[in-house]
Design a binder for these strands. Sequence first.
DNA 1: TGCGTCATGTAACCCGTTACATGATTGT
DNA 2: ACAATCATGTAACGGGTTACATGACGCA
Lengths: 179, 179
Amino acid sequence: MSRSSQTQVAVLGGLSVEPMTAYALREAIRDVLGHFWSESFGQIYPTLQALEDAGHVERRGGARARSSVFAITRSGEARLIELLNEPVQESPPRNGLLLRLFFGRVLGRDRCRELLQSARDAASSQLAEYEQLLAGLQAAEGDTPDWPFIRMTVLAGIHHARAAVAWADECLDTLQGEQ
Amino acid sequence: MSRSSQTQVAVLGGLSVEPMTAYALREAIRDVLGHFWSESFGQIYPTLQALEDAGHVERRGGARARSSVFAITRSGEARLIELLNEPVQESPPRNGLLLRLFFGRVLGRDRCRELLQSARDAASSQLAEYEQLLAGLQAAEGDTPDWPFIRMTVLAGIHHARAAVAWADECLDTLQGEQ
DNA sequence: TGCGTCATGTAACCCGTTACATGATTGT
DNA sequence: ACAATCATGTAACGGGTTACATGACGCA
């Protein structure tokens, strides 16, 4: 049951690290989970409201304060565990780059080469970014109990980026011929 | 300009291969582009209607026939090229598996291991599937001008699946310790 | 005095899926 | 005759983004 609110996972998870305002929560999600998750204000505020109504989070600093800090409650922690245990549901695939390449005959070889090259460049610089991030986080969080799990998410980015670079190179090779 | 209708690319692209009914188009998209793209009936029918109104496709077999075949027109081909040349816009990331792993401390080591193992299994069998698909397509389409481009999309799947397996293995290693 | 950032929310909109209603064709 | 599949569409709904409206606080 429970209507898919994966948003609740991000929100409750964020608050499980430390209490914060909705605004700070959004920044945390953007900055920390940004590589594999995103939420907008339009989702966060209503979700927090719903979670408060359900008693899963509590508002500190006055119900009508200009700046209210939210904290996760006991029942919120239980709810988070429940949600984390629900089966992972992935969204239908929609890869604009592959869609374009598939119709490459129509698009033209040159334009395909350009697309591949810029995909390669993007993946390559992202790879460098992730590697730096990993080193930085290792220094900052290396001792916390969260570290092994944080590391996994960055590793996923690294593996993915490496694969993208190798793929683009292989494709560029096959398009190398004249004409 | 032009509101993002990536759906139009899939539809016009499909019809650029050969004329077909809306129903067949949906099957083609599911079976052929399925690894990286998806469209539902609720998208395809209105899109075809809009494209017909714009003169980009034409309906053959009677306007009110029970089974009308759509064909791309000259202006539709131009439109397709135009759309293919628009910048690739990717949707915001939303990876449910990484979201769960990130909060692995809350989820628990055992459950994380399970998630990783089933992700590994899925990727591994997908890899085998892609490799078989590549061989099959090579035999069937190896001589067509579309082949190099079709191949690229399958290669992307292969690289991605291999990376997923390697990543899951690496993560499982770090979680191997007792406790 | 005024700018930038922190902060809270809402409303409009868009994209897309699911479910439903309907009926023709084909094979057994 | 009937079941399965081909075929066409629509309506309801849900999830999510963007843009907008509003205002406090700190600082230069």
